[in-house]
Amino acid sequence: MALMPKRVKHRKSQRGRIRGNATRGTRVSYGDFGLQALQGGWISAQTIEAARISAQQYLRTEGKLFIRIFPHKSITSKPLETRMGKGKAEPDYWAAVVKPGQVMFEVGGVSEDAAKLCFRRLAFKMPIPVKFVKRRVM
């Protein structure tokens, strides 16, 4: 099941702008290796789910996958062949707002080669360019 908030204050949100780089969540914190966003964007709940399945199928029972983004934002869309106006449309899907530099996924308990292969599969699902990062000591 795709991720979604349990309770929200407002059903619809304004579009907003993705400005600047991420200042938090830019380091590998839980696992040993991570996948860092190189561009800002909306990552839909469906994309996160697809990435999770792709990673789980590769990892099987080995290692642990950490998902560090959550789709908090509802994205609305108007139905096809509808005239403009008549107010804001209904929520279509949920998305996570990602800034450049955000570590989106992490993997722990596997070798570097395995983590690279896992993230390679996962990167194909992403709508933005990403890069492989390692845990830093200092």
Binding site: M1, A2, M4, P5, K6, R7, V8, K9, H10, R11, S44, A45, Q46, E49, A50, I53, Q56, Q57, P91, D92, Y93, W94
Partner: peptide, 16 residues
């Protein structure tokens, strides 16, 4: 781990 991807449509979160 569940390998099936669920559909996003349909369910909506509860309003506070």
């Amino acid at each position: 781990a569940s390998a099936d991807a669920g559909a996003t449509g349909g369910e909506q979160p509860e309003l506070i």
